[in-house]
Design a protein around this nucleic acid. Structure first.
Lengths: 123, 123
DNA sequence: TCGCTGGATAGATGAACGTCTAAGCAGAGC
DNA sequence: GCTCTGCTTAGACGTTCATCTATCCAGCGA
């Protein structure tokens, strides 16, 4: 759990990596990036990220997340841990409750990677 | 294997889905989209997509792909099948060789999903 | 201090995954 | 028709994953 919650601007790390379709990914980067995509490769986790990122105020209490899914509390906790380890979300404990928020830099990085270059740019 | 190879413009399906951070993903969409992310969640497959999408001419022969990886031919074939079933790539046989190309609509759809809305757009 | 609540961790279990070797199939050329 | 090459499919095997129940830990209030 880091302390500083970033504002959801999406301008921090727009262009760390070139788009997938512009030049091949280096093997070293592939492992790192694939881990992030793998974290998103589960319906429950994808919905979790979406709920967290789209929530008003930019952060959500776990207690608001758990009842929205059919799986058990520990399972949600496990999925949140996977997403956190992938760098997609972060959290902080405040008293009894734990709050999660999205890390826009990581989302933007992945989005930029999948962006297909415009025709004018490639030829 | 479908017959028509689309040009890599990336303008076809810019906005099928709202960004993740704009509104929660519907459970029905989540399964579909998570499958695509899961397909990208393997280093070998991520590099395959990258090599295919960034290749000059927009398509690659399998024979050019296989020697660039440490895994066996059947394994590459398996990964290509997974990517094809996820709708990320498509292929066509031409005589002895099989050619693969990226499906820009799917890449753009995923990119749009991960796009973090600009601050001016949300408030 | 004691009990309650919110959430994380530990361990178990069945399913899915990544990889391999062996075999099959489709074209091309002799 | 036969054989060679390129690629896919089939089946096996060990690992990883998603989920559960049981347990633990942290903070709060009486």
């Amino acid at each position: 759990m880091s302390k500083q919650r970033p504002v959801l601007t999406g301008t921090e790390a727009t262009g760390c990596c070139s788009p997938l379709a512009e030049q091949p990914i280096a093997a070293a980067d592939a492992a790192d990036l694939a881990a992030a995509f793998k974290a998103l490769g589960d319906p429950t986790r994808l919905q979790l990220v979406s709920l967290i990122a789209s929530h008003a105020g930019g952060e959500v209490c776990v207690c608001d997340l758990t009842p929205r899914f059919a799986v058990s509390g520990p399972t949600i906790s496990h999925h949140l841990k996977v997403l956190r380890q992938a760098g997609l979300i972060d959290c902080e404990r405040r008293g009894t409750w734990v709050y999660y928020w999205a890390v826009p830099a990581m989302l933007t990085r992945l989005a930029g990677l999948l962006q297909v270059p415009q025709p004018a740019a490639v030829r």
